[in-house]
């Protein structure tokens, strides 16, 4: 039961990084200084999916609270600055994207676009650091609380934050090659490939820093699984790079999506059976079972999830299906 909820939590957070990831990637690409109509086109490429993307984050938080209350408290309070950064970013993006086209003046719209860029940056960095914080362990004491926040400020956390940032930009650019009208999308291909190379370097750097970090090595319960998944991540990025070269944006997007989901899997699998490893007191570490809610709660939520999950995924799939394909001059424009 706990395992199923652990997997579900991973699924929703990975889903958020994949879907929210291209929102933020597209958001960051607004910084390129493209002209106003191009920026608007990019945002409307995300258009109908935007609201359905960020809810994956809210659902992850809901599952975290309902099924892993103890983890919820310690993880969020224990990674305070990183979560705060990410949240501020999420809010700026959500307000920016939805409000940027409401004023008529181009000046106001450009200002909102800057808000979106900053928000996307904060969100990508913040979640990257949160994931890194899990992987390098936290000072969890015997009283069950994480002490202090300075434990977050390590080279590995910085490298991981940058890696997630690079991943989202590359992912966003790949998304645009898939969604924009064919001519426009093709024009973005060289940029997307360059960004994929950057992401490769950033991910490689984060992996190296991680492998040489004592804290990561001590916290990792299954280091080989971690390394294997990191290699897979690199393979996914290479696949995307090759696929874009061969004008296969669909394949490339699938590959960058995998690349955004893999960090979550990597953290979950490397720490298994723990979810929060203590760097100060081995006995204080939380296993998945320790962190989970008690049996009656999980049973209740389980009964609910069985009919609900197909509905949730079904309606999301409906949205993807209705608005599939490239946008064209006849697509509704709202953001």
């Amino acid at each position: 039961m706990e395992l199923a909820w652990h997997a579900l939590l991973g699924l929703f957070f990975a889903g958020y990084l994949v879907l929210g990831g291209y929102d933020y990637g597209v958001g960051l690409l607004l910084a390129r200084g493209a002209d106003a109509s191009r920026r608007r086109a990019a945002l409307n490429a995300v258009g109908p999916f935007f609201l359905g993307n960020e809810v994956w984050l809210v659902a992850s938080a809901g599952i975290l609270f309902g099924a892993f209350p103890v983890l919820e408290g310690e993880l969020l309070a224990g990674s305070y600055p990183a979560v705060l950064t990410a949240l501020a970013g999420v809010i700026l993006v959500t307000a920016g994207v939805q409000l940027r086209s409401r004023p008529e003046s181009m000046r106001a719209r450009t200002t909102w676009d800057r808000v979106i860029v900053v928000g996307s940056l904060l969100a990508a960095l913040g979640w990257g650091v949160v994931l890194a914080g899990l992987l390098q362990g936290v000072p969890l004491h015997a009283d069950g609380h994480v002490a202090g926040v300075t434990h977050l400020f390590t080279p590995f956390a910085a490298a991981a934050g940058l890696a997630v940032l690079a991943l989202t930009v590359a992912h966003g650019a790949t998304f645009l090659t898939l969604r924009l009208p064919a001519v426009e999308g093709d024009r973005l291909r060289p940029l997307a490939r360059r960004l994929l190379r950057t992401a490769l370097v950033a991910v490689g750097a984060a992996v190296l820093v991680g492998v040489f970090s004592d804290r990561v090595r001590a916290a990792a319960q299954r280091p080989m699984v971690g390394v294997l998944l990191a290699v897979l991540l690199v393979v996914a990025l290479l696949t995307a790079w090759v696929a874009l070269g061969r004008r296969r944006p669909g394949v490339a997007f699938a590959a960058t999506s995998a690349a955004l989901a893999l960090p979550v899997l990597l953290v979950g699998a490397t720490l298994w059976p723990y979810v929060l490893v203590s760097t100060v007191e081995p006995h204080a570490s939380l296993t998945v079972t320790d962190a989970a809610a008690s049996a009656p709660t999980l049973r209740l939520l389980g009964w609910l999830a069985v009919p609900l999950l197909p509905a949730l995924l079904g309606f999301q799939a409906m949205c993807w299906w209705i608005f599939r394909g490239r946008i064209d001059g006849r697509a509704p424009v709202y953001w």
């Binding site: 659902a59 809901g62 599952i63 919820e72 609910l304």
Partner: peptide, 10 residues
């Protein structure tokens, strides 16, 4: 946590 989780999902 249960009603809150249900709220986010449902």
């Amino acid at each position: 946590g249960a009603p809150l989780a249900i709220e986010t999902l449902v």
